[in-house]
Design a protein around this nucleic acid. Structure first.
Lengths: 197, 197, 197, 197
DNA sequence: GATGAATGAGAGTTCATTCAT
DNA sequence: CATGAATGAACTCTCATTCAT
C-alpha cells in the first residue's frame, strides 16, 4: 500500500515493515554472523536493491530497526502509567507490562537482547544506553525519597528488577521456565523484596 | 610450551590459546557480523590455515572456545565452596566469586554473554543450558528445604540472583555503574532479600 | 544481445556463452586439476561473482556446459537424416557428419571427451549415458532387421562405429593422424565392414 | 617391508604402491578436480609428508603412476606373443589379452583413460603417445605386407581395433554392456572384419 | 519506487609443499 | 625413513552495494 500525503509520495510502509520483520526473524534463526542483505531481501520478498531505497546501508537499517523495537518495548512497558498511583502499584504495573510484552513478542525481544549484547550497540548509543528505562529510573528515585525503597545506587535497584525479567524470558523461550500466573506473581513479589527498604 | 615426541611435531598449546584470545578480543571489538577467520589469524599471529590444524571449522572453534570460557567461569564461581558452611555463607561466597570473576575477566565475560544471546548457543546445548549453575541450583534447593528461602520455582530464584550480577557487570564495563565495596555488599544483600523466605 | 523489459535488467546471453567458451578453452589447456572459477572469470572477462548469477555453482556450470555441448554434437550428427534413405546411406551420412563436427569443433569435442572420461559424468547421467546416440542405435536395429548388419549386440555394433571416430579425432588433434578425403572414406568403409553381415 | 640392498637403504615398495593405489582409487571416485595430496595421503594411510619422500611433487607422482600403469597394460597386452604365430592368431591373442586386462583391472584402466583424455598427457609424452601400441602397430604393418589387411593408413587400422575395446570396457563398467564369451568373440570377429583385406 | 544483474572484495576453507623433529 | 604441524596462496562462493532500466 502506498500512501500519498499532501503532494508528497511516501515510501511503502509495508515494505519497510517487511524488511524489519525479515531481519528480526533471520537474526534469531541464524545470527549476526550468517545474516546478509540478500537473505533478508529474499525473506522479505523484495529485491536486494529495494532495501537501499529505504535505508542507507546495512548498519543504518539495523540501527533504525533497533530504535524501532526499543520504542515498541518502551511504550508497552509504561503503558497506563498514571502518576497518581502509588509507587508500588506503578512498579507492579510496569513489571507486568514488561513481562507481558516479552512473552508476546518473542522475535522483537530476542533481537533486542542479541543486539544489546553485541558491540553494535556502541554505534547506536554513543553516550547513554538506558534512556529506555528512564521513567522506571525516575520511579525508583521517587520510591527512595519516600523511604519505601533501599537507599542503594539507583542503577543497582533498577537492574535488580529488570534483569531477572529478561533472563527469565529467555529461559521461557528455551522452554526451561514457565510463565504461569503464580510465577509472574512470585517474580514481582521477589523483585519488590529485593528493592524495598 | 612445545612437547616433542620421537618423529612428531606436536600441537602447540600456546597457538590454541592465542587463537582463543584473538577471537574473544575481536568479538568484543567488532562482533559476530564483522569477525572473520583471517582477522582472527592476523590478531593471533598465525596463518589462516593454522586455525584449521586446531579446529574443524569456524563453528567448531567458537563452540570449543565457549565451552572453555564456561569452564573458567564455573570453576571460579564455585571456588572454595565447602559443604560445611551454612547456606547463606555459601550464597555470599558464590556471589562474590562471580562478581570478582566478571569484573576481572572483561573479555571472557562479554564474549560469554554475547554468545549466550546469539543463536549459536543452540548448537552448543541441544538439551540443557544451565549446567554451569548446577551447584548453585542445588544450593537453592537446599535453602528451600531448610525453609531459609522462598518456596518459589527454583529456576526463578536462581535467575533472581545471577541475572542482576551479569547485567550490572555490563553496565560497569560501559562505565554506567561502579563496583565499589558498598555496591557489592548492597547487591548481595538485595539479592538475598529477593530470595529469602 | 541484451533484452530489456520494464524495471529489470535481464541476463545477457553473451555472458553465459562467454563463460562456456572460457571454460572449454581452459579445460583443454590446463585440465580439471588446474581450472578455477577465477581463471574462468578472467578468461571470460567477467567478475567471479557474475558466474554465480548464471549458475548455482561450479558443478552446475560444468553440467550445463556439458549438456549444451552434447546437444550441439547430437544435432550436427543427425543433420539431414531423412528416413527414406536406405540404411547404408544413412550410416554414411551420420559418419561424415560426426567426423566433420569433431574436426571443426576441436574445443567442444575435446572438452566432451575429457568430461565423459571423468567421474563428473556420473553426476550428469544417473541412468542412461547414450541417449545422444539414440537415433544411431535405432538405425543399427533397423539394419539388423533388414539382415544388412551382423546379428550382434546392438551396443557392440554402435561402439564399433563411433569409437574409432572419436579416437582418430584425438590422434588428429595431436597431429598423429591426417583426416584427408581418403582416410575419411577408408574409415567409413572399414566401419561398415566391421558391422555388415 | 623394507629391503636392504648392498649397503643401500631402499624405499618401502609397499608405501609407494599404497600411494599409487590410493591415487587411482580417488581419481576414479572424485576426479582430478577434487583430488588432493592430503586426501591421497589419508587414503594411503601415510602422512602427506611421506609422499614427498617418494616423489618430487604432485605432477611427478602422477606422471610416474601413469607410466607404471601403462607398463602394466602393455606387458599384459603382449603377453605370450610369439613371432612364429600367424598374424591373425597374434591379432586374436592381443585382443583377448587387452579385453581381459581391462575388465580385470577396472581402477587402473579407468585411471589410464581419464589421464589420456586430459591435458596432463601432454606433459608425459612430449613427442609420441602411442609407444604402448608399438608391437601392435608392427603387427598390422606385417599383415599389410602379407596382403591380409587393408592397405589403409596403419594408424587408422590400429585405432579400428583398440578403440572399440576401450569404449566397450567403459560401457561394461557402467553396466551398459556385458562382456560374455559371445560378445568377446563377436568383438574380435568384427574388428578383424574391419581391418582385413 | 522497484528491480535484479553485475561487481570486486573478502568470506571460510583447502591446497601443495616444507621442515623440525 | 617418516611424521604432521605449519604456512601463504589459492580455492569456491557470498558479500554489501551500485545502477541501468
Amino acid at each position: 500500500m502506498i500512501i500519498y500525503y499532501s503532494g508528497m509520495r511516501y515510501k511503502d510502509k509495508n515494505k519497510n515493515e517487511a524488511i524489519f520483520q525479515a531481519t528480526i526473524q533471520l537474526l534469531n534463526e541464524i545470527g549476526f554472523s550468517e545474516i546478509s542483505m540478500s537473505k533478508i531481501a529474499k525473506r522479505a520478498q523484495v529485491s536486494p536493491g529495494t532495501i537501499y531505497v529505504y535505508f542507507e546501508n546495512k548498519e543504518d537499517m539495523l540501527r533504525k530497526l533497533f530504535l524501532n523495537v526499543e520504542q515498541k518495548i518502551s511504550s508497552s512497558m509504561f503503558q497506563g502509567l498514571h502518576h497518581p498511583l502509588p509507587v508500588k502499584a506503578r512498579f507492579e504495573l510496569v513489571m507486568s507490562n514488561f513481562i507481558e510484552f516479552t512473552i508476546n513478542h518473542k522475535d522483537e525481544f530476542l533481537f533486542f537482547e542479541q543486539f544489546c549484547n553485541s558491540p553494535l550497540i556502541d554505534n547506536v548509543y554513543p553516550v547513554d544506553s538506558n534512556s529506555m528505562f528512564e521513567p522506571l529510573y525516575k520511579l525508583i528515585e521517587e520510591g527512595k525519597e519516600q523511604k519505601l525503597l533501599k537507599d542503594y545506587d539507583t542503577m543497582l535497584l533498577l537492574v535488580l528488577i529488570y534483569a531477572p525479567v529478561t533472563e527469565l524470558a529467555k529461559q521461557y523461550f528455551r522452554e526451561e521456565f514457565e510463565f504461569n500466573d503464580k510465577n509472574v506473581k512470585d517474580l514481582i513479589q521477589a523483585s519488590w523484596d529485593a528493592i524495598r527498604a
